[in-house]
């Protein structure tokens, strides 16, 4: 079991009524999908906010960053960086700077 840190944007941590940074226990390989599964299990109101319910696809104006790199287009089975899996670096959820 890994404890992963996730930083949410204002709109989502106010919706979740959580702190901006939360910790999630992730069982098995620390992939982006596994972290999102754990996030939605802990905060059901975020289901559908980051990825499409039906397809699992990332919402177009949501991106994921960690360790200075864009992790948004990682494959479903690709591992997040070790620093994230070890809880030393957070996974950042970022709303695109777009629109009004």
């Amino acid at each position: 079991m890994n404890t992963v840190r996730v930083v949410l944007p204002y709109s989502l941590y106010t919706l979740a009524r959580s702190a901006a940074e939360i910790e999630l226990d992730v069982a098995g390989p620390v992939t982006l999908a596994a972290v999102l599964d754990a996030l939605e299990a802990a905060y059901p109101m975020l289901t559908g906010a980051l990825r499409d319910r039906a397809t699992g696809q990332r919402r177009p104006l949501v991106r994921f960053f960690a360790c200075q790199d864009d992790q948004s287009n990682l494959g479903a089975d690709a591992l997040l960086p070790d620093e994230v899996a070890a809880g030393r670096e957070p996974l950042l959820v970022v709303g695109a700077i777009a629109g009004g």
């Binding site: 919706l15 559908g48 906010a49 980051l50 104006l61 949501v62 709303g95 695109a96 629109g99």
Partner: peptide, 8 residues
Amino acid sequence: SSSWFGQV
């Protein structure tokens, strides 16, 4: 709702 984060 929001264009970024969908429907609540």
